[in-house]
Design a binder for these strands. Structure first.
Lengths: 104, 104
DNA sequence: ACAGGATGTAAGTTGTCACTTACGGTAAGC
DNA sequence: GCTTACCGTAAGTGACAACTTACATCCTGT
């Protein structure tokens, strides 16, 4: 059920840009917001959403909050996508298709 | 860039339910809309969105329009997800982390 | 040709959400 | 202590998108 939240959270372009920036390594909010066309509070809100979805980790370092990618949070979404490649399912689908008749 | 559209399209719960129903095989709009808490036109609109994103195929069979999953449409999203597991990237990230010292 | 079923599309409404500004809190430096 | 930087949160606003109803279109029987 968590893959639904991952999809919803990653669907927003700005939020996705923040998430992708974290691929280069852990970053404080300042660095994540720099250069983006939105305000820093907006980035904070996006980070909260990412955190609630389990997609990022948060760690305090003095006055800074360091965010980093949490790969585990992506696993459910990945698994869900894989269900569309499942062999048994594909076989069933092809069989149903074949026994159907003609196309177009 | 197509993975962005896939994310946006699959983020909607109702649209995702329609898409998941197609796992059982090709279906006409009628069958897809049956039992859903929304009207049939709503399902039609969702199918258009899925089609524009390349996630489903459409085939005419008499008066019916038969929709089916198009797995190719999911590949970019799948590849994008994989970039977060990429080994070379992880190595780079760990190295950058190690040789850090100064940031900002 | 007409009726009925199946589907796409137009137009309008409403809720949600991403954004902004303003403010509060904490940590580090002078 | 005071100031400044860093960050989260509250409140309000505007745009978009998912939905509805109504209508247009195409196909199939009779």
């Amino acid at each position: 059920m968590a893959y639904a939240m991952s999809l919803a959270v990653l669907a927003d372009p700005t939020r996705r840009r923040v998430f992708e920036r974290l691929r280069a390594g852990p970053r404080p909010v300042n660095a994540l917001a720099a250069g983006l066309p939105v305000s820093r509070p907006a980035v904070s809100q996006h980070l909260k959403a990412l955190r609630d979805a389990g997609l990022v980790n948060e760690r305090s370092e003095g006055a800074r909050r360091i965010y980093s990618i949490r790969r585990e949070g992506l696993r459910e979404l990945r698994d869900w996508l894989d269900t569309f490649w499942d062999d048994a399912l594909t076989a069933f689908k092809q069989e149903a298709e074949k026994s159907r008749g003609a196309e177009k």
